[in-house]
Every structure is written in structure tokens, then in C-alpha cells.
Design a protein around this nucleic acid. Structure first.
Length: 457
DNA sequence: ATAGGGTTAG
């Protein structure tokens, strides 16, 4: 076994090793004793796995560090140990620990273990480092379907759906056949860009493929894709024909109707979902579907798009009181939107002031937009004042404010506001896309019509 | 024993 002093080599030097000891209410000697005991049957990977299953990320990392430092356990570190340790770094704030583990993966010579490479790809994507993620992919010698799917997923998760579809196409050109997981991710990319034709091609491909397992995730992705791409009728038809709907199925349909301004349908589905769960309590456990926080975003969106202020307020209250769901930023955003669209600007202002966490600029911006729409000078000026403190360089706020002045005939004030914009901003430009990038690569292969069917558009 | 998926305001 090679001898490495992991902590004094030059390229580890600039990486300060994690100090999560501060977060743990035990002294390091207590931990050492505890780890010694857990080693007695010396199966360190089982211990790492156990800590991971308990969701105790800090302990995973501490224990991994302990393994590194103890002469007796050092030799038992293998690629599985790294896998468990890396899984503990999945959150954005754990990226520094994760990068250090990546260094160690290289030192230990595990850099070509495909499972570790794929996991690192995913982790870099979670840390919003797409360059590194893509590089991890490039370094995999034998890219299998899981590697490809991870890369596509990385782009979807980082709001680059066009790039995701490009990789999806490239994958097929490399003769890798998509499976049900790949198409689920690709459908999500279609939904994000509104690529209905591509989505339909994928749907046709799924239907034509006997071997493909059409599971609930895939069906949900289809329902979402059709709704986001404007085909609400097909979306609803699929929804109605889905037998064992889960919370995502219901939520996708509620959001779909809400986006199409069909508040009545959205709320009706929400009612049905709740009725079902009551029935279920009386009968069997198999149909219980409880709404989650995302479901309520859909419900509030529906209310706000249809001007149902009282209904929206009722659902917002019921969310915490009946379902024990704490509202997050988007829920507050929906409520502000609800008041603003209905023209209840004062209510919107009061609501924002009562929020438990300080509102972000976008929240105030919603209200400023509404003030501009309704020519509310006094409130608008106050909101503008708050925005100047939060996000002073945002030009649209100046535009909105100058429009308020124009609206009530204060032309001198408007000119001043407009001139400030002129000084601060380079002129913008617009562009439109003619045709689709994907259509540049039409690869109709009549010998393998099914295989190439979904590549091109 | 190890790697990939669906719903989220403006």
C-alpha cells in the first residue's frame, strides 16, 4: 500500500479540510471513542452507509476523515467509501467538502470508477458548476445510458433545456438508445422550452417501444410536457386515463390548468384529490394522496389568475392550519400576485410587510408593476424607495416609476426619471430564432426509422 | 454493496 501524507502535499494545501466539528455537540475525543467502537467489527463502509441513511451528513464526513487519519482503517477505504462520503455532499453548501473528496478520489486512483464519475457529474451540477460537470462526463471512457442521462439532467436542472436536448440528440447519434429515465428527463426539457413537436416525437417513441417501462414518473412528465407546451386537452386526457395518480400527477395537472387560466378546472381537481383522500381514510390505504407545498403553489396560481382573492386567502390559511405546510417564498409571491392582479394594492403591501422573512426584490417589483398599472403614485414611490435599497441598478424599476409619473401627467418628473435610465444603460437589442437549431441536423435513416425518429424535429 | 428521472410565483 502506498504511503500518502494526505494533509501535507502541496495540492491539498490550499484546500482547508472541513471543520464540521463545530456543528457537533460532542468533543472530538468522544467521537473518536464512538468511532473506535463502531470499528470493532471492522466494516467501515457499513458505518458510513448507516450514517448516510440517518441523513447525518456531518457524521459521514467526520467518520470518513477519521478513516483517513487512523492507520488501522486507512487501508479499508475503497471506492464504496468514497461513494458514501460524496453522497453526503449533495447540498450546495457542501461543495468545498465535495471538491476535497474529489481530490482524494484522484489520489487514491479511483478516477475511472464509473459510478464515482457519474456521481461527481451530478454533484458538480448540483453545485451549479456545469463546466466541471461536463468535463466529468467527457472523462468517462465508456459512457453508458446512466452517464448520458445524468448529463442531460444536469442541464435541465440548471435551466439549460436547449443544451439538454442537444445532448439528448447527440446521445442517439452515438447509438445509445434512450430508456424510460432518459425520456423522462428529455420531456422535462421539452416542457421548459415549449418544444411540443419534440415532446410528441418522444411520446410516439415511448409508445412504439415495447420494452420500455412506462412508469408514473414518465407519465407525469408527459402530462407536464403537454400542459407546458400548450396542449392542455391532451394533457388532461392523459391525466384522466392515469390510474394510480400520485401527488405529482395531481399537482402537474393543477398547475397546468392554472397556467391556462382555467381556475375552475384546477380547483375542481384539487377538491377531487381531497375527497379521494377522505374516502381512502374510510376504506383502504392505497389511494391516499395528500397535497404538498407545490400543490398549493398551483392552487394559489389558479386563484390569482382568476381573481379569486377570497378563495386564495382561504387556501393559503388552510395550507398551514389544515395541512401543516409552512409557506415558502413562492407561496408569498403567489399571494402578492393574487392581491396585485385584483388591484388590492394596499392589501398586497400589508401582506408583504407581515412576511416572516425579509422579502426579496422580486416581491416588491410585483407590487411596483401593479402600482404602475393602476397609476398609484404614493404607494409606488414608497415601493420604489425600498427597491432602490435592495437592488438599485434594476432599470425596469425606473421605467415603471417613470410610467407612473406619465400616467398622472407629471411630465417633468417623468423626463428626469427617463434621463437617469439613459445615463445608466447600454441600449438593448432583440433577436428571434428562425427555425429550430435541431432542424439543422435531420438524420432520417430509413433503415432504422424508429431509432432516428426522435432525433430530429 | 456502488451511478440517472416527474410537480414550484413574478
Amino acid at each position: 500500500m502506498l504511503k500518502l501524507n494526505l494533509w501535507h502535499e502541496p495540492f491539498m494545501k490550499h484546500l482547508k479540510w472541513l471543520n464540521p466539528l463545530a456543528n457537533v455537540p460532542l468533543s472530538k475525543w468522544h467521537l473518536k471513542a464512538e468511532f473506535h467502537n463502531s470499528l470493532k467489527p471492522p466494516r467501515p463502509n457499513q458505518t458510513l452507509k448507516k450514517y448516510l441513511e440517518c441523513n447525518n451528513q456531518t457524521k459521514v464526513l467526520l467518520y470518513f476523515r477519521y478513516l483517513l487519519r487512523e492507520r488501522s482503517s486507512f487501508n479499508s477505504i475503497d471506492s464504496f467509501s468514497f461513494l458514501f462520503a460524496l453522497k453526503a455532499c449533495n447540498k450546495k453548501h457542501s461543495s468545498s467538502e465535495g471538491k476535497q473528496l474529489h481530490c482524494l478520489v484522484l489520489k487514491f486512483g479511483f478516477q475511472y470508477v464509473v459510478q464515482l464519475q457519474t456521481l461527481l457529474l451530478k454533484l458538480y451540477a448540483e453545485w451549479e458548476n456545469l463546466c466541471e460537470a461536463h468535463q466529468m462526463f467527457d472523462e468517462i471512457p465508456d459512457k453508458n445510458i446512466i452517464c448520458w442521462t445524468s448529463l442531460i439532467s444536469a442541464y435541465v436542472d440548471n435551466h439549460k433545456p436547449n443544451k439538454a436536448l442537444e445532448v439528448f440528440r447527440l446521445m442517439q447519434m452515438n447509438n445509445v438508445e434512450p430508456d424510460q429515465v432518459t425520456v423522462t428527463v428529455a420531456l422535462s426539457a421539452c416542457a421548459d422550452t415549449g418544444a411540443l413537436e419534440m415532446g410528441e416525437r418522444i411520446h410516439a417513441f415511448v409508445r412504439s417501444k415495447q420494452g420500455m417501462k412506462k412508469d408514473l414518473c414518465l407519465t407525469n412528465a408527459l402530462i407536464n410536457m403537454y400542459a407546458k407546451c400548450g396542449d392542455i386537452v391532451t394533457s388532461r386526457r392523459l391525466f384522466d386515463s392515469t390510474k394510480n395518480k400520485d401527488v405529482t400527477t395531481w399537482t402537474s395537472m393543477i398547475v397546468g390548468h392554472a397556467l391556462h387560466g382555467q381556475a375552475h378546472e384546477a380547483l375542481q381537481i384539487f377538491e377531487e384529490m381531497n375527497t379521494r383522500s377522505e374516502k381512502k381514510n374510510l376504506n383502504s390505504c392505497s389511494y391516499l394522496v395528500t397535497p404538498n407545498d407545490v400543490t398549493f403553489i398551483g392552487v394559489l396560481m389558479a386563484c390569482s389568475h382568476a381573481g379569486l382573492v377570497e378563495k386564495g386567502k382561504g387556501h393559503f390559511r388552510s395550507m398551514t392550519e389544515d395541512y401543516g405546510i409552512q409557506p415558502r417564498e413562492p407561496h408569498f409571491g403567489c399571494m402578492v400576485d393574487l392581491f396585485c392582479r385584483a388591484g388590492h394594492l394596499r392589501d398586497a403591501y400589508d401582506f408583504i410587510m407581515q412576511m416572516p422573512t425579509p422579502p426579496k426584490a422580486v416581491i416588491w417589483r410585483t407590487l411596483l408593476g401593479a402600482c404602475s398599472l393602476h397609476g398609484e403614485l404614493e404607494l409606488g414611490a414608497e415601493v420604489r424607495h425600498k427597491l432602490l435599497k435592495l437592488d438599485p441598478g434594476y432599470v425596469s424599476d425606473s421605467v415603471a416609476m417613470s410610467n407612473i409619473y406619465a400616467d398622472i401627467g407629471m411630465w417633468d418628473k417623468k423626463v428626469i426619471a427617463r434621463n437617469q435610465i439613459k445615463q445608466s444603460r447600454a441600449p438593448g437589442c432583440s433577436s428571434i430564432e428562425v427555425g429550430s437549431r435541431l432542424s439543422e441536423c435531420v438524420t432520417t435513416d430509413y433503415n432504422h426509422p424508429v431509432k432516428t425518429n426522435i432525433i430530429c424535429s
